[in-house]
Structure formats: C-alpha cells, structure tokens
Design a protein around this nucleic acid. Sequence first.
DNA 1: TTGACATCGTTGCAAATGCAACGTTATGGA
DNA 2: TCCATAACGTTGCATTTGCAACGATGTCAA
Lengths: 145, 145
Amino acid sequence: MSAHDPFRLDLFLPYRLSVAATRISRRFAERYAAEAGLSIPEWRVMAHLNHSGSVSVRDIHARVNLDKSMVSRAATRLEQVGLVSKAGHDQDRRLVALELTAKGRELMQRLGRSAQAFQAELVAELGEDAEALDRALARLGARPD
Amino acid sequence: MSAHDPFRLDLFLPYRLSVAATRISRRFAERYAAEAGLSIPEWRVMAHLNHSGSVSVRDIHARVNLDKSMVSRAATRLEQVGLVSKAGHDQDRRLVALELTAKGRELMQRLGRSAQAFQAELVAELGEDAEALDRALARLGARPD
DNA sequence: TTGACATCGTTGCAAATGCAACGTTATGGA
DNA sequence: TCCATAACGTTGCATTTGCAACGATGTCAA
C-alpha cells in the first residue's frame, strides 16, 4: 500500500498476526481442554516441564511468556491435580523445583502426540510457506525487547 | 521433529505464533497509547472505521475479531472523546451507525502513518520472508471455523 | 559479620476480557 | 394481522490477566 492510501487494518501485520494467533490457539486449546481439562497457562507449563526436567517458576516465566503470577497459579493447580510436583530447591531455598509427576509425563505423552498431529495439520494447510513462516517467527522472536 | 522425540513447546507453531503476536502487538500498542491514549480495541475500531465508512457494531465485531461487548464499549468511549459518532441507522433501528468524526479522521491520518512506518520496520526485519509470512497468514485466516 | 540490595515465589487487587441475558426491533410464515 | 423467532447493541457478571507489593532468602562489599 502506498503512503497516501488510507490505512487498512486488514493488511496490517500486527493485526493479522494477532488474529491468526488467537484463532489457532483457540483451536488447539479446545483440544487439550477437552482431553485434559487444562487452561492455556497450564498447558504451557506442562509442555515446558516435559522437556526441561526440574525447573523453577522463574525459568518458566522467562521462557514461556507467562507472567510469574500465572506460572505460580498454574503450578499450584497442577500440583493439586497431581500432574506436577513442587519441591524446594537444594542450593537456593528461594527457588521452587517444578517437575512432572509420572501421571504428568503420561498425560504429556498423549498431548504431545495431539500437538504433533495438530502441527502437521497446520503445516499441511500452509503448504510451501510453512518453512518461511518458521523463519519469520524466529526472526520476530529473536529481536531484543 | 520425529514422532518419538519429546514434544518441544518452543518448536510448536501455535505457541510461537502467539508469542510473536503478543510481542509485536505490545510494541505497537505502546506507540498509539502514547500518541493517542487508545487501547487495543479502541485502535481496532478506529482503524476499521477509517476505511469502512459508516458501519454497525455487528460489522466491526465480525471483521475485527472483537467481542461485540468490546466494540460497544470502545465505541462509547471513543464517542465520549469525540473521535467517533454514533447515530441510529435509517432503515434498521436496531443498528448503530458508527463513523469517524473529523477529529477522528485527523487522528487516524497520523496513526495510519505511524502504522505504515511500523509495518515497514517489520518487513525490513523479516527480509525475504515477509511475503511468505503474508501468504501464510492469509491461509491461516482463510480457514473456516 | 553485618547491612544494603537483588531475586524468588506468592498474593492482593484493579483492569481487561468473554459470555450470557436482556430489552428492542425486524422478519417471515400462519 | 399476529405471533414466533432471530438479530442487534448494551449491560451485568464471573473469569482471566498483569502489575505491584510483600515476606523470605541470597549475595556482595564494607
């Protein structure tokens, strides 16, 4: 669009990105809500723990784009349901050591497969642009705040 | 990733999309919050009105991915600030005819330029993948619910 | 050793969000 | 014409979210 055309929201990248993201997230969130009764923050915490081993709230907060209050609350709920264990850290007693329980790992195996399947659907929809989207997201993510 | 590797959240498309979108939206939201004191829903309503002429709450709700309650509240605030006018529709008295005021159009000219500039920054960051991202977002958006 | 300062996780709280119900108006068939 | 049904915009309300403050712990230099 040229500099003098009126601005068009539906051609605006941040807007389109946001719409696409909300849409896709919802689509997938419905699945794990149905399968496991997880909210989005809970899913993220579980998914991160699945490949991170024992980890603190701070770590997840930093890596997973969730406010630490949300991580904290999600962890509490997940512990109540028996999917996650919270223990004190050995060296630093400020830290909490979060870890999947056996039940949690089991659940994540199923959900991991679900996620892979979902991603495969998306990649299929995207066709040849899938790789480029991948790179684009990496670049957008790499940028410092 | 193969079917047997543990699932990795940071390679998962919905997650990455969501993170990128939040990030970018915030970056830009700071600008128009500073320049014009607009919230995200307000910005969207303004931006849509900018190239749609007179339009109802329902139209915006459908096109702009905002709950109609948010559109309604945004419109009310924007009217109070004198950026938008609300009038009854001639044929159908259930409808509200939303329109930018002169002041609103003026503001959107500035914000439109801001947005173009921001988009240009993004496209520069994305380099050769910008077009592919464009197509990818179009495909993701095209899909029926 | 002590004291100032930073970091961790939790909690309180206010704002944003999304859903559902409501009153009002329109539509379409009996 | 009249009635049942649907669509519109607003509002109330419960949930989610993000920020800021707090107590507890750790760090580092004087």
